[in-house]
Write a protein that binds this DNA or RNA. Sequence first.
DNA 1: TATATTTACTTGCAATTTGCAAGTGCAAAT
DNA 2: ATTTGCACTTGCAAATTGCAAGTAAATATA
Lengths: 138, 138
Amino acid sequence: MKELKQRSTCPVSTSLDVLGDKWTLLILRDMVFSGKSSYGQFLQSAEKMATNVLADRLALLEAQGIVTKTVAADKKSKFTYRLTEKGVDVVPIIVELVRWGAKHAATIVDPALLAELESGKDAAVAKYQQLARDKALA
Amino acid sequence: MKELKQRSTCPVSTSLDVLGDKWTLLILRDMVFSGKSSYGQFLQSAEKMATNVLADRLALLEAQGIVTKTVAADKKSKFTYRLTEKGVDVVPIIVELVRWGAKHAATIVDPALLAELESGKDAAVAKYQQLARDKALA
DNA sequence: TATATTTACTTGCAATTTGCAAGTGCAAAT
DNA sequence: ATTTGCACTTGCAAATTGCAAGTAAATATA
């Protein structure tokens, strides 16, 4: 298991030590907003991440207690990744990234999601957190 | 000027294309919470970033319109970096990183800041955004 | 039963990025 | 005239990433 380097004791820094790269938060985004839960599903995302990087990040996320890895109910050769409560707590970060990206970069955003965030951010955060919890229990 | 690679049109992805590395958000953190504004001040942070990486990230932040670079009022050989409104809008992301790090990683957090965030997150976000705006005008 | 397919990785290697140490250039202080 | 401070730049080794191909186990298909 790869060990985590902590650059300082600042909470922003420690968060970035875990989440601060180009791929980790995209995996979590897929779990939160697209309900994805398997290696193959993550690979199919628009950003096309490399297979070795995906495997590495999933292992790190599991080692950090942000996701759990279990054998899928239907197939023994398939794994299911789910958010832990530590992972559910990442939702507000992702939501703020959605808002910043939608406002400042030319992006195509699901209008329904954007309207949901604009009309009540906290409610939307709570909703996606609860959805993730429900999946984790299923 | 280095061009930015956009991996997809997803707002989370486009935000991470700009902010998703181990250093950029630490520079912005220093501007927001420590009032830092110069190359030398950023170098002194606990995380000890390399000089070439700092120069590179400052140039990218300026190219992206997140910070402005001006000659310092007192010295012609000194530059002052300030947040633009696009940069001010990053504050909520940093605040969520503080909250996640404080809750889930072994960090040392300024108790006053933590209390401020817990008692009223939105008010704290607004306060630090306004402080950054005031500095930009000064 | 044999073969193909699905799912989840692993491996090898070139290319990019990072980190470290040292050096450069300009302005201001001494 | 020389030193100091500030803001970078450069060179290079080490680490990380991205791409293509290969492996392995469980299932589906002929």
